[in-house]
Design a protein around this nucleic acid. Structure first.
Lengths: 243, 243
DNA sequence: TATTCCGGGATTGTCGACAATCAATGCTAG
DNA sequence: CTAGCATTGATTGTCGACAATCCCGGAATA
């Protein structure tokens, strides 16, 4: 499993991205979301810290952060294992919560975003479009993330933003594991429409657009009916609170 | 501020409550929710670790946990400060999210709770009632918490439970700071009705009861309109993403 | 043979010391 | 007198070592 570890420590040219732990979270979250780690897999602090070229401290904090983002569960003295998401829970809980968060955020952001903010959104769309053309899914996803983050941050509600940051990784991981719903081009187009709507500053228009954007676009072609993690390499372990 | 610290360390008779950090979280959360620490107040790791009779490690983890429960915000190299909740955000975001979580949980728990589970719920109601008679608010609140925790755990959905545990402290803190909505007796009665509904195992009845129970019982007497932290001891610092 | 108990190894939890960073203070120069 | 800057104190971030705990397997026993 320790094929291409990405040491995060001694990289002088890396502009200050904050403390080590912060970067460790980003690395691990990415590895989980993109499926490098499968649900049910154990994450050992010592191993990770070696691979990442840091001590166990930052790794520990990173794991706790991931736990709060729902990508991992851990029990005292037992350690952390990667967690899956059930189809049902995504549809019935995570998406509705996301809807609550974004409706509120967009409604508030609506009346307080500046031209500079709109420009920043435009920039993300531009990046997204280029990435879509190149079929670079990760980059599209990151721009998507940035887009929503900008809006939510503009709303200026700390709790809303904080909760959102613990919700999206799960949804992201879900869409990454099972096929994502819409084509890249459609995603780009939807965001363009969202930005247009925002610029009119018409609540009705924006919220309508938003619902269309978020609403369960999941049951795409062949959606998995059950949400069993599907990892399962031999050991029947990943299950917990199964049916 | 360091009047009656509650050292958590050397208590041999205290049955295994897990690692130190766990207990530290409970202590600090309580102090914040009950208002011992006011919004805007800084929490210094070294100070707390001394008061609690442990090292900085567990305190550090506790602070991160509190951050994920929305009781605290912290920036790198700057530390943690107690956070307030705006009336608006509670009504528009936290309560709706709680509604999503509990609707789903009750609906699922409905068809999988055993008689033993019901008995456990009954027990909490009994405790709650006694506490209500004695006007012991903290105890009522704890029983209330347990009640909902039992139901949500019975639903067996990890993400739902995990998110719920990051939502309720904020709501609780809110109701504690500004007056709570209902009288203790009403709370007890509502839970009794909830349990009765659950025992019929009729979804319509349960969900109806639930909505009535959760719905914004907030705008009680005089709810504060703005949510500014109100700490502010001299320095105009605690503000962040203010208006 | 089945069962209980007791290591031994692996892994997490805790601690104290040290390094990095921030914020305020006072000093210097213009 | 003011602006800029070095210095210093307080506080957080990181590290390595040690303690506590769990899990697995094997030996002793009935």
């Amino acid at each position: 499993m320790s094929s291409d570890a990405v040491p995060v420590a001694p990289d002088p040219k890396r502009e200050r991205t904050g403390p080590r732990g912060q970067q460790v979270v980003d690395v691990l979250r990415n590895e989980i979301i993109t499926g490098r780690f499968e649900p049910g897999e154990r994450l050992i602090e010592a191993t990770l810290s070696q691979e990442l070229g840091t001590s166990r401290g930052p790794v520990r904090e990173a794991l706790r952060q991931l736990e709060n983002e729902g990508l991992v569960v851990s029990e005292p003295y037992k350690g952390a294992v990667v967690l899956g998401v059930s189809d049902d829970e995504v549809q019935e809980v995570l998406i509705p919560i996301r809807l609550v968060l974004e409706r509120y955020s967009f409604a508030r952001a609506l009346e307080r975003m500046t031209e500079a903010d709109f420009a920043e959104l435009g920039k993300q769309i531009w990046v997204m479009e280029r990435a879509a053309r190149a079929n670079d899914l990760p980059k599209v996803v990151e721009a998507d993330l940035r887009f929503h983050d900008i809006v939510i941050t503009s709303a200026g509600q700390l709790h809303t933003a904080q909760i959102w940051r613990t919700i999206w990784p799960r949804i992201r991981a879900y869409f990454f594991r099972y096929g994502r719903g819409a084509s890249l081009e459609v995603m780009v187009e939807e965001h363009r429409e969202l930005l247009d709507a925002l610029q009119t500053r018409d609540p009705r228009l924006v919220l309508g657009m938003l619902e269309k954007h978020i609403v369960v676009r999941t049951p795409a072609p062949e959606a998995p009916a059950t949400r069993r993690p599907r990892g399962e390499k031999g050991k029947a372990k990943a299950r917990r609170a199964s049916d």
